[in-house]
């Protein structure tokens, strides 16, 4: 529990830093985010890291359920009157419940973003830019390619998700970026119909549920961070107060950072 928990804490930092790019709006922000998304899905080290993360989440959840089950069994008859608030924190006693809520959140979160971007039956729209020649009213739609060049959207077809082909000769002429930025900002209320993502009509609900999930995560980390060190036997009068302080800070700042993004997106829609 402790090892997977601490590994997942490092994952949270990486994920948060990636997400914070969403604060940079405009064409530049969109491009940076989509390039980041492409890197995250095409780098072999990231692949190894992501599978380690999936395995950690599964192990952390299954081990947690087994422990909670054993712990329930260890007290078959409950007290008629118990006052646990007198000796322990609410978060520390609710780790299994908090963890279960977080697991449900992870499932919906991956269905909303990861699944849509990766496996959705309808092809994911690619990163496009609208340009017009100087002095001309007519707009032209172009694909941004991974080499940094642009290709016209008309007359070309998309294969295997991101590969741009010239249909007559069946030749790959470039590779585009999945428009993860538009997918994300549309989910939290921005109208990106032109990019293929109409605004989510339940954006407010999405923001509220996301924020509640982050609150749950905060409580989970409030206890979990320093608890992991205790489980590993890392306890020392010199370092433990520091670990506990970092743990509390981590538990507040990381979920707050995550939650700030959809709230920002919703109010700038």
């Amino acid at each position: 529990m402790a090892l997977t928990g601490l590994f997942l804490c490092t994952f949270l930092i990486g994920h948060l830093l990636g997400n914070l790019q969403l604060f940079a709006g405009g064409e530049e922000g969109k491009r940076a985010f989509n390039e980041y998304g492409y890197f995250m899905s095409h780098n072999i080290f990231i692949k190894v890291l992501s599978y380690t993360t999936y395995i950690s989440i599964l192990f952390h959840a299954i081990d947690g359920f087994l422990l909670a089950f054993q712990n329930k069994k260890a007290r078959p008859v409950n007290y008629a009157y118990s006052k646990p608030s007198a000796n322990s924190g609410l978060a520390s006693r609710s780790m299994a419940l908090l963890g279960s809520i977080i697991l449900i959140f992870i499932c919906t979160h991956m269905a909303n973003f990861w699944w849509k971007a990766k496996y959705s039956s309808t092809p994911m729209p690619l990163h496009r830019v609208e340009v017009s020649a100087p002095g001309s009213e007519q707009k032209q739609s172009l694909y941004l390619t991974t080499t940094g060049s642009f290709l016209p959207t008309e007359g070309l077809v998309i294969k295997h998700g991101t590969q741009i082909y010239a249909p007559e000769v069946n030749l790959k002429v470039g590779e585009g970026y999945k428009d993860l930025h538009s997918l994300t900002v549309a989910f939290f209320g921005h109208d990106k119909s032109e990019e293929g993502f109409p605004a989510n009509e339940f954006a407010l609900l999405a923001v509220v549920l996301y924020s509640l999930a982050m609150l749950t995560l905060s409580f989970h980390l409030w206890h979990g961070f320093s608890s992991a060190f205790q489980s590993l036997g890392v306890r020392h009068p010199k370092y433990t107060p520091f670990i506990q302080m970092v743990g509390k800070g981590f538990a507040v700042l990381v979920p707050l950072g995550f939650a700030s993004i959809p709230i920002f997106l919703y109010f700038t829609r």
Binding site: Q70, N71, R75, P84, A86, R93, R235
Partner: peptide, 22 residues
């Protein structure tokens, strides 16, 4: 058949001999 430790710290608070979580 005792349960597993989840570091709630309740034990040390209630211990009549103040045994530490150390």
């Amino acid at each position: 058949g005792f349960g597993n430790c989840t570091n709630t710290g309740a034990c040390a608070v209630e211990c009549p001999k103040e045994i530490s979580l150390d």
